[in-house]
Amino acid sequence: MTHEREITEPVDLCLPDGRLNPAAIGWTRRPLHRANLRGWGRVKRWEYWGIVTPTHILGLVASSLDYAGVHSVYLLDRRTGLERNHEVVVPFARGAILPPRSGDGPVHAAGPGLAIDIDQRAEGSTIRAVAPGVQIDLTVPMPPGHESLGVVVPWSRRRFQYTVKDVGRPVRGTLRVDGTGFPVGAADSFAVLDHGRGKWPYAVRWNWAAGSAPGRAIQLGGRWTDGTGSTENALVVDGRLHKIGAELTWRYDRTDWLRPWHISGTGVDVRFHPFHERRAKTNLGVLASETHQCFGRFSGWAATEAGERIDLDGVVGWAEEARNRW
């Protein structure tokens, strides 16, 4: 299913001079990389948590993009389709805390009207955030034996990215919107982590899809990994990760984002059926981004390492296209 090397021991992402450590290139089933980034020059660090409940979809971002910290809390009411998004830009990411290891240590980001605090421990993470009209108090436990996908993508020795995509995590707690509390239960809600650390090219485009249902979760990526020898594709079945090493073909209509998407390749034949499109655009001159993130339901299948096709009908999540100049 994959030609990539599986890493099974802790490793530093960078050499002492800040270049990519060749021993770090590969993929993992649990976070083993220490992102010992140094210096200046398109160094990017972020934590993104996406949370799906029967009533809402949440997105939380804490980031440091060299010359700015861009932090946000996004909320979609699934019943009404109403969105709210509070984003703050903090010069030089002052005050942001983003630890070098995924799942280990505190994360903090704050700006006018917004604060995000994440406590990461071996047994799981707690997420607390406040934004205008929104209060979030959630626990994301780490199930025994649960596996996540870690990948190092090497564009060159000086441009590279380490990502952890942790899909299908249970989540529980409370979401409060304009004073009304909404309980979040682990039986019908899930959380997805995107942990990123690296040194990026100035302009890049990517696709990302993630979704979960009881006992099944899917993680698919594209464009930004093309030609690097690394991919970020995986199927998770009952907590066990099945790495998919093929580069995938993404087909979707950029004039109508709510039309069905088709993602296919060796070991994958997935349809994605959107029910809502989120558009996000930032233009700060040297830093600009445009993202079309669609929420919806998956159908089709993905194969395990043994070749068994797992039905993805009923999996809920998102698929997106992002373009960044940063």
Results as ranks from 00 to 15, higher is better:
residue 5 R to K: 15
residue 7 I to H: 10
residue 15 L to G: 01
residue 27 W to P: 06
residue 29 R to Q: 10
residue 35 A to C: 14
residue 39 G to V: 09
residue 39 G to M: 06
residue 41 G to A: 08
residue 54 P to L: 14
residue 57 I to E: 10
residue 59 G to P: 05
residue 62 A to E: 10
residue 63 S to W: 02
residue 63 S to P: 07
residue 72 S to E: 01
residue 87 E to T: 15
residue 88 V to K: 09
residue 105 G to I: 13
residue 110 A to D: 06
residue 111 G to A: 10
residue 116 I to W: 04
residue 123 E to A: 14
residue 129 A to W: 06
residue 130 V to R: 15
residue 132 P to C: 07
residue 138 L to S: 07
residue 141 P to I: 01
residue 142 M to L: 03
residue 144 P to S: 11
residue 148 S to W: 00
residue 148 S to P: 04
residue 150 G to S: 10
residue 153 V to N: 12
residue 154 P to A: 08
residue 158 R to A: 06
residue 164 V to Y: 06
residue 167 V to Q: 08
residue 170 P to K: 03
residue 176 R to K: 12
residue 181 G to Y: 00
residue 183 P to N: 04
residue 185 G to R: 15
residue 189 S to K: 01
residue 195 H to F: 15
residue 196 G to R: 07
residue 196 G to V: 08
residue 201 P to L: 15
residue 202 Y to F: 11
residue 204 V to S: 14
residue 204 V to W: 13
residue 207 N to A: 06
residue 207 N to D: 11
residue 208 W to C: 08
residue 210 A to N: 15
residue 211 G to F: 04
residue 213 A to T: 12
residue 214 P to F: 05
residue 219 Q to T: 12
residue 236 V to A: 11
residue 245 G to L: 09
residue 248 L to K: 08
residue 249 T to A: 13
residue 255 T to S: 12
residue 258 L to E: 13
residue 283 N to R: 11
residue 290 E to C: 01
residue 290 E to N: 10
residue 292 H to S: 11
residue 292 H to Q: 11
residue 298 F to Q: 05
residue 301 W to D: 09
residue 306 A to F: 04
residue 306 A to K: 13
residue 323 R to F: 08
residue 324 N to V: 13
residue 325 R to G: 06
residue 326 W to N: 01
